[in-house]
Structure formats: structure tokens, C-alpha cells
Write a protein that binds this DNA or RNA. Structure first.
Lengths: 228, 228
DNA sequence: TTCATAGTTCGATCGTAACCGAAGCATCGC
DNA sequence: GCGATGCTTCGGTTACGATCGAACTATGAA
């Protein structure tokens, strides 16, 4: 009754389908304009505007105006984690939006989760890093090993730079499609960035899925093998 | 729009103040009757009944009828984690139910979080276990060491028994009042149970707070010291 | 059997919030 | 300056859901 923080407010914010859709879309990590968000929410811009104002007042979103556009993003990583964790929970209970099935196979294979790689490929990458001794997994926590730091340098990722940020280097994030952990944190972000930079993969316009090129696919599978 | 699980449903379930209050109360871990839950929700039994039916249909609650009572509990630990994580999130944004202040000091000192100890004492216990080398912390994951297993046996906790359950032994759980981790999982549960069994502490009737006796307080602080 | 307690179902009321059309600002391109 | 585009604010409609009184079912006690 009177004890503790107020869950109901944020629950209600997420509880509206239009808002939930917008938040889910923003989990894709890229900033979206009010009009785009109205599209994903299936509502008019006027309605979207009031929704966005509420979400911002609730601290879930921030906006950045740029010219005559307003770009909305999730307020911070904590929001992204909350949304993803709710997705995981919902998926586990069968609260799927439109029934099961290998829906959107591209999305299950590889997609972006705020700023890092998720889906089948995300899970595979973490599994492989653990198997090769680059990352230590204890319970549900992750830590980079010295070997891992060396290996990463070989593929052009300087871990020292990443450590300077306040953000944790490794963090595990639960995947709603695979129901297994994948790598988040600044290292997860750096790895995905490097794949994009190398041209191995690219983001798609309207979806959260990540498309690997044939060559990128080959390189990725070679770099992150899984033993049979 | 069409991709992924449906967050809005569970958001809406949690989004109603009466339901949120009931869920928060059930985070206390003990089963409550419909009438009791109506009390904490501040509504009549009829209304509570429909709310409870919705929560059950949504997979958040289960009920067990016993005589003419119906006891409701959270469906499983995942629900408890979801609620606690939302509380942590809400607390971080200042979404407090009734303004700040050292509200309910007893609750901040020690309270139950589903089935384990949270609050100041919960955080202290985990800190101490890590400092003494009983638990390894890697990232945000926890693992019991051999030394820890021995130490626990000395205070009457047989870790072997706990391992048999499918539930993870150690798990870290984020505290909304302290904003730091405390120990959950079957070990967290076992530790709290042992404190209650020993008579060091007892649960209170209507609140989630845990009251330590003077003697229990002394023993607890001696058992889990923190270096200055 | 009858009465009391616990809970659900029904029906009706009421408030709130989602929604859109239209109008109002702001910014850009010209 | 002008019109076009992106977004917000206003006003009014509508629909859904939370709420409770009252009636109904189930269990237990006497």
C-alpha cells in the first residue's frame, strides 16, 4: 500500500499498446522522429505527440530537436534493459503479439538490442567467447580475461578505451528469442560497431534486424566457432 | 509494431495502482488471501476478485484454495524478479509513492524480497561474504567458493542439499532502497530461513520488513562484519 | 438444517484516457 | 517574404475498465 516505489506509473506507461510499440521500436537504438513513431504505433501524429510527452515526463524518453525534427531515444540504458527484460518475461509466458512460429527469421538470427548484437548470432558470439577462454562466466556475470583482451586487440578493439567509460565492460543480457544470454555492455557495443564498420553487416531501415553479408557471415562464423 | 513479444499486456497488468499494490505485497513472499489483498489494494473484495482473476489469467499469480480461503502467490520467481526490477527502476527515477525521506526506516534496514533478505542488512551480508572470500563476484554474477561452502556448513547450511534444486544457488538481486546488490537464489533463501529459525529475526504481520532481535542483531553483525 | 464467512459473478455507473480533426507554432527551402 | 513540412495544443467524442452494490456459490461451524 504505502511502502516502496511506485511501480504502477511506469507499468501504466508501458501498458498502452501504442506506447509499448514505440518503446520497442526505440530499443533498436536509433533515434526516431515523432512521425516515424506514430507509424510504428499505428496512430496519428497528434496522438503520438501526447504519448511521447507522457513518456518523456515519465523519464523513459529524451528528445533532441534538430531542425524541424524531434528525435526521440530511450532515456538511458536502464530503460532499454527494462524493456528487454519485460520482453523476455512476456515471451516466456507466451504473450506473443501474433502467435508463435519462426516469426521474422531474420530477427531471430541477428538483431540489435539497444546497441549490441542479439539473437542467434549474439548468443553464439558469447558462447564462443566463453568457450575460448576470452570471457569468464560466473553465475550470470561476465568478466573479460587477459587472453580475451589480447584476442580483441587482434581484431581491432582496444579494451583500454572502453574501460574509461563508467559503463560496465561486460554485461549479460537475456534474449527473448533464444532465452539465453548474449553480451551487452560497452564491449558488446564495440563488437557490433566493428562488424558494421568492417562492412560485415548492416542495419536495416525499419526493423531491428541486422543483415550479414555473405562475406561477413563467413568471417563471423570463423571468428566465433562453436564446437560440435 | 509486429515484432517481438507483447509488453503492453503485462505493463497494463502492473499499471493499475490496485494491482501494483497487490503484487508488491506478494513480493513479501507469503501467500495472501483475496480479502487481505483487497485491503492492501484499498478496494473492495469484489473489485479485488476481478483484479486477481486478471493477474492469474496473465500468468503473474497462482492460487491455491484451502478450505474456504484462496491463497494467492506470485506465479514464480521470475515474476518476483520482474517486480523488484521495476521497483529498482522506479526508485531510480524518483517515482516514489509518497515522497522521499528515510521512509519506513525498518524497511530500509531489513526486509524480505520474495524469499531472501534485502535492504541494508542484505547488502551488508553479501558485501561481507565477498570480502571474506566466501563468494566470488565477477561482473554482476556470483559464485560460491569452496571456502564459502565450508563456512556455511559451520552455521548449519548444507550447500549440497541446495544444489539439488534446479534453481540457481547464487543470484544477485538489485535493491531499490540501497541501489546495490544483495544475495538471492536458493542460498539467499536458506540464509534468511536460518536466521528466522534461529530466532535472530522474525517477519512482521503486515509489512515486508524483517525485525531483528537485539541478540540476533548482535550475532548478525558479528557474523557478517564489514571492514572499516 | 441453519447461519456465518470467503469469494465470485452480474449489472450499472462513472471517470479517465486514448483518439482524431482542426487550428496553431516553429523551422526549413525557396 | 511565401508555402511546405514537422510537430504540438485544443476541444470534443468515444470506449474501455475500474469500481461497487447486490445477488449467488462454496465451505465451514453450530
Amino acid at each position: 500500500m504505502k511502502e516502496g516505489p511506485d511501480i504502477a506509473q511506469i507499468g501504466a506507461l508501458i501498458g498502452d499498446p501504442a506506447r509499448a510499440n514505440m518503446l520497442a521500436a526505440l530499443t533498436g537504438g536509433r533515434a526516431l522522429t515523432a512521425t516515424e513513431l506514430a507509424g510504428v504505433g499505428g496512430i496519428t501524429v497528434q496522438t503520438a505527440s501526447t504519448h511521447l510527452a507522457k513518456l518523456e515526463a515519465g523519464g523513459l524518453l529524451t528528445q533532441r530537436k534538430q531542425g524541424r525534427h524531434r528525435y526521440f531515444t530511450l532515456a538511458d540504458e536502464a530503460v532499454a534493459r527494462l524493456i528487454e527484460s519485460m520482453m523476455g518475461f512476456a515471451a516466456g509466458r507466451g504473450h506473443l503479439r501474433h502467435q508463435p512460429g519462426p516469426k521474422e527469421p531474420a530477427l531471430r538470427k541477428a538483431r540489435i538490442c539497444y546497441d549490441h548484437l542479439a539473437g542467434d548470432y549474439g548468443v553464439r558470439m558469447l558462447d564462443s567467447l566463453i568457450a575460448s577462454g576470452s570471457i569468464d562466466a560466473v553465475g550470470d556475470g561476465l568478466a573479460l580475461t587477459e587472453k580475451g583482451e589480447g584476442d580483441l586487440k587482434c581484431i581491432g578493439i582496444n579494451v583500454g578505451d572502453l574501460r574509461s567509460s563508467r559503463r560496465p565492460l561486460c554485461r549479460s543480457c537475456l534474449d527473448w528469442s533464444e532465452r539465453r544470454a548474449h553480451l551487452a555492455g560497452s564491449l558488446g557495443k564495440a563488437l557490433l560497431s566493428s562488424f558494421l564498420d568492417k562492412g560485415w553487416a548492416r542495419r536495416t531501415a525499419e526493423s531491428r534486424s541486422i543483415l550479414f553479408s555473405p562475406e561477413g557471415d563467413r568471417q563471423f562464423l570463423k571468428l566465433f566457432p562453436v564446437d560440435p
